[in-house]
């Protein structure tokens, strides 16, 4: 094997902010932390619809979708996205949600098909570790 083909290619991550929520400092901090761990991060910008987020996941052939929500509308957006991912044969993407998510909502989100939920104060190292060790599995499963 040559050196170029011996190592795995970088993980591709879409970081998206749905709806009427213009606060994207957290999303940018996460994007940068993932970049620093060697991942290729596509940032979609704020005010995205589930359809535009799906489009990014599909066209970018993402391994991971990270949804950042601080508006309280995470349940609706995550539910819609899970349905869209399934309809479009991309439920193999590792789907994580971060932001101001009440602990009691985490189980609901996982019920929709979200893989993991990260609340305020999560160290970025924890996020990197979770994605690194779970992304390929989600893709291969």
């Amino acid at each position: 094997m040559t050196s170029a083909s011996a190592s795995l290619p970088p993980l591709k991550v879409v970081i998206a902010k749905p709806g009427l929520d213009g606060h994207d400092r957290g999303a940018k901090v996460v994007a940068r932390a993932l970049r620093d761990s060697g991942m290729e991060v596509v940032y979609t910008g704020i005010y995205q619809s589930p359809e535009s987020i799906l489009r990014a996941v599909v066209q970018e052939d993402a391994d991971v979708l990270g949804l950042s929500s601080l508006s309280g509308a995470h349940l609706e957006y995550a539910r819609d996205l899970c349905a869209l991912l399934k309809e479009n044969d991309r439920q193999d993407v590792l789907f994580v949600v971060g932001g101001t998510i009440p602990p009691e909502d985490a189980e609901t989100l996982k019920g929709y098909g979200v893989h993991e939920v990260f609340g305020p104060g999560t160290p970025t190292a924890e996020l990197v570790e979770y994605i690194s060790s779970n992304a390929r599995q989600a893709r291969l499963a």
Binding site: A31, G38, V41, V42, T44, G45, S49, S52
Partner: peptide, 20 residues
């Protein structure tokens, strides 16, 4: 990144409006 090999790809931010 020449250091980590990672990247932030931000070009979609400016294009999304025209994709809908």
């Amino acid at each position: 990144s020449p250091l980590s090999g990672g990247a932030v790809l931000g070009d979609r931010v400016r294009m999304e409006t025209y994709l809908t």
